[in-house]
C-alpha cells in the first residue's frame, strides 16, 4: 500500500499540474499537453528534492480519491442552493441581516484542509471567506443570513464532515 501510494501521489500531482497548465492556456493541443506534462514532472521532481511538496496525510490516497465524487457533488449541491438563496436575497426589497460568523476549524486539519475549506465555501455565493486563522483555529465567514450564527456554524461543520473530511481531513 505504501509503495502504491508513493507512486500514485506524484502521478496525481503531475496530472493536476498539467490540468492547471492546460486550463490556463485553455488548450488541449498534443504539443501543449506534452509541454504541460514535462513542466509538471520537472516541478514535482524539483519539489521532492527541495522538500516543497511533502504533505503527508494519514488517510491513504485511494481512500481520499474515493471521496472526490462526494466532494464535487456536494459542492455542486451547495452551489445550487447557495445561488438560489443569494438570488432571492438580492431581489428582495428588505435585505436580511448579513453579518460575520466565526466557524471553528477542526484541530486535526492541516493547511491543505483549511485552504480546501476556504475554496469550497468561497465558491458558493451565499458565503464569503473573510479570514482564515490557523493559529486560533477559526474561519471568519460573511453570510447573507446571520440571524442564527449557531445554525450557520453547525451547517458548515456538517458540510465539512459529509463532503470534505475524506479528501482533505
Amino acid at each position: 500500500m505504501g509503495k502504491q501510494g508513493g507512486i500514485l501521489g506524484p502521478v496525481v500531482r503531475i496530472v493536476v499540474l498539467t490540468a492547471i497548465y492546460l486550463m490556463v492556456l485553455t488548450s488541449i493541443d498534443p504539443a501543449d499537453i506534452l509541454v504541460g506534462v514535462l513542466l509538471a514532472t520537472a516541478l514535482v521532481l524539483a519539489g521532492r528534492n527541495v522538500g516543497i511538496i511533502r504533505t503527508r496525510s494519514q488517510t491513504p490516497l485511494p481512500r481520499r480519491l474515493a471521496g472526490v465524487p462526494a466532494l464535487i457533488g456536494g459542492t455542486l449541491i451547495d452551489l445550487v442552493t447557495g445561488t438560489w438563496k443569494t438570488a432571492r436575497w438580492l431581489i428582495r426589497r428588505e435585505v436580511a441581516k448579513s453579518d460575520l460568523v466565526e466557524v471553528p476549524i477542526p484541530p486535526h486539519g492541516g493547511p491543505q484542509s483549511a485552504a480546501a475549506w476556504g475554496v469550497r465555501v468561497g465558491f458558493v455565493p451565499d458565503t464569503v471567506v473573510v479570514e482564515i486563522d490557523e493559529e486560533k483555529g477559526r474561519m471568519l465567514l460573511h453570510v447573507i443570513d446571520a440571524t442564527d450564527p449557531d445554525a450557520v456554524v453547525a451547517e458548515q461543520l456538517d458540510t465539512y464532515r459529509r463532503r470534505q473530511r475524506r479528501v482533505f481531513p
Binding site: A87, L90, V95, S98
Partner: peptide
C-alpha cells in the same frame, strides 16, 4: 444571474455584501 448580480452590486451598501452579488456572476 448576471443581471441579478449587477443589481446587487449597485444596491448593496457594503463591500462584503457586494461580494455575494459578485459571487453570483463569477460562479454560477
Amino acid at each position: 444571474l448576471l443581471t441579478i448580480s449587477v443589481l446587487g452590486v449597485l444596491r448593496l451598501p457594503t463591500v462584503l455584501g457586494q461580494l455575494h452579488a459578485q459571487g453570483l456572476a463569477t460562479g454560477p
